[in-house]
């Protein structure tokens, strides 16, 4: 696989490490219920199809990236920095 890092250009997947679903948002630990935090920590969708997921460019710029990948074909539709992902994210 190749991931087009917005900072470094297209790079081999060996330079990156995978974390998983980019969707869960961490609740504030002082306000959240244990159940809400447990959902954030453990519950993940596992779609067959388009998936927004977090990758870390550890052998490059150290950026955490949001990669939109089709889990069936590995086709990558978009690679965004966190800032780009936040700017484009629905409110």
């Amino acid at each position: 696989m190749r991931i087009a890092c917005p900072h470094c250009g297209p790079r081999d997947v060996q330079e990156f490490s995978y974390l998983g679903d980019a969707k869960p948002q961490r609740p504030d630990g002082m306000d959240a219920t244990e159940a809400a935090m447990a959902d954030y920590v453990h519950q993940r969708d596992n779609p067959a199809g388009s998936h927004r997921e977090l990758w870390y460019h550890g052998a490059g710029c150290h950026a955490w990236l949001v990669v939109t990948r089709d889990t069936r074909t590995h086709a990558i539709a978009a690679v965004e920095t966190m800032a780009q992902a936040r700017a484009g994210a629905p409110a």
């Binding site: 974390l19 961490r26 977090l54 870390y56 950026a63 955490w64 966190m82």
Partner: peptide, 8 residues
Amino acid sequence: LEFCHQVL
């Protein structure tokens, strides 16, 4: 730490 800063 990079995760905590950039993502959280």
